[in-house]
Nucleic acid binder design. Structure first.
Lengths: 247, 247
DNA sequence: CGGACCCTTGAGAGCGGTCAAGACTAGTGG
DNA sequence: CCACTAGTCTTGACCGCTCTCAAGGGTCCG
């Protein structure tokens, strides 16, 4: 069971990141140690703070908290294009030498880990596994993006919300952030969820009620309980392969 | 004017690919020559043929024609997640050593160019510019994906179609596939367009009529004329920066 | 206790979907 | 060269999922 990763992981956020990376590609003790030394822990950032590209230049990793990539259209409409959970890279610009162009905002108290670009280049040269793991992380990020396209394009409101809750369950399980009782913290308002899945706040609310009434989930103060993963998966038409969590 | 790239480019599809790559990162004569030798021209593939991952293993490039990445849901609904135009890589799995998981289908007579993975690895080592160009291509592909998310999430039918027509105008201009009179070939049916922008065939039809009536575009037998790029851009709320075509 | 933000609920409107049928086009075979 | 056919484009009518507007209730925090 994925949630067992929790106790095994301990609670150091840098270890969590290293663990996450090693799921993409096994890392030996030496590579792990090099990573530990390379990651600088940043300050705590309050919720709803926008991160400017300079703020996550270098190679940035989310150690704890929650970050959303979003875009604000001229007419005021907002779309969240990606959700970054602890253990994830904030942005993959470093792999192509391009500067991040996306806007990012925290939705919870968050802490970044940073690796100087120069240091990362050396790490990548010395430990090919670290480079490969990062590339696979980027590929998975792209796969998640495609999944979002599919959700927004052809899935109903219920399917979209069920999908994203399933996805988060698997992603958070991989970094030990789901509880044994089947819950996880989701520090997003219903309005923010709507901006992520392309629905209005009102409709998110009504749709979540449907999911609750079917007994698939329950919600309480920023926490999601997955009451029946099988039912939720069925409602979503969800298949976790794209997250490539089972090597 | 971007369409001037046409005459300058000549009509060899391998040169087109090299030109496209060089827009991401300048390539010297030696690198270009190495690429020329590395690319194997594949056979002509008829329209509506599905490409299986083995068919574009290695590193595959679309030399001519048109390819769509898509996903078929269990309920029969289909979503096109990406459009590959000549000069583009078909898939970026080679950068992370993962096998392509996406389904691909041709929508026109197409020809692939292939570089053996081993050969590409050598090329990348010998010519860092080629590797960087490929990585930037992948980053741009991701940016196009994000743009699609935004379209599907918060844009109206008119905006979505105007956006995609704008995007294709710029992408095709970059590889000399737009005419001086402002037209390009779009080998997709309205049903396929709908699968790409998340609209029903009927609504695509009606929405295209709106775009025609405003004088922004005209359509005829698989050809799109951009009659008023400024108007189309305004209707779409389009900004081509994400395509990173102006270095 | 007050205020701000979030969640919830109701009512009505609209964008886009579905169903269905006719018109057009291109490719096929006689 | 001309039917014939299949696929695509087009149009109309109706439906429904989701949006917008609006207001009430909860909850957290100052």
């Amino acid at each position: 069971m994925s949630s067992l990763a929790g106790p095994l992981l301990g609670n150091d956020p840098v270890e969590r990141f290293i663990h996450r990376l090693s799921l993409f590609e096994p890392l030996d003790a030496e590579a792990r140690e090099a990573l530990r030394r390379a990651v600088n822990r940043g300050p705590l950032i309050p919720p709803l703070q926008e991160l400017h590209p300079e703020a996550f230049g270098d190679v940035s990793v989310l150690l704890s908290g929650w970050i959303c990539h979003f875009r604000l259209l001229t007419n005021g409409r907002r779309q969240i294009t990606a959700m970054v959970v602890p253990g994830d890279f904030v942005d993959f610009g470093f792999l192509s030498g391009t500067v991040a162009t996306a806007q990012c905002v925290t939705t919870a108290h968050s802490q970044l880990g940073r690796i100087r670009t120069r240091t990362f280049t050396e790490l990548a040269a010395q430990f090919p596994a670290i480079l490969r793991a990062s590339q696979r992380a980027a590929a998975t990020d792209a796969a998640i993006g495609r999944e979002r396209i599919i959700s927004l394009g052809v899935r109903t409101a219920t399917e979209r919300l069920a999908s994203i809750l399933c996805e988060l369950w698997y992603r958070l399980s991989a970094v030990g952030l789901t509880s044994a009782e089947g819950s996880y913290d989701l520090p997003m308002t219903q309005a923010e969820l709507g901006a992520a899945v392309g629905l209005s706040t009102v409709h998110v609310n009504r749709t979540l009620q449907v999911l609750r009434r079917t007994g698939a989930i329950s919600l309480q103060s920023g926490k999601v309980w997955i009451r029946d993963l099988r039912k939720l998966t069925a409602l979503a038409g969800f298949d976790p392969v794209y997250l490539s969590l089972e090597p």
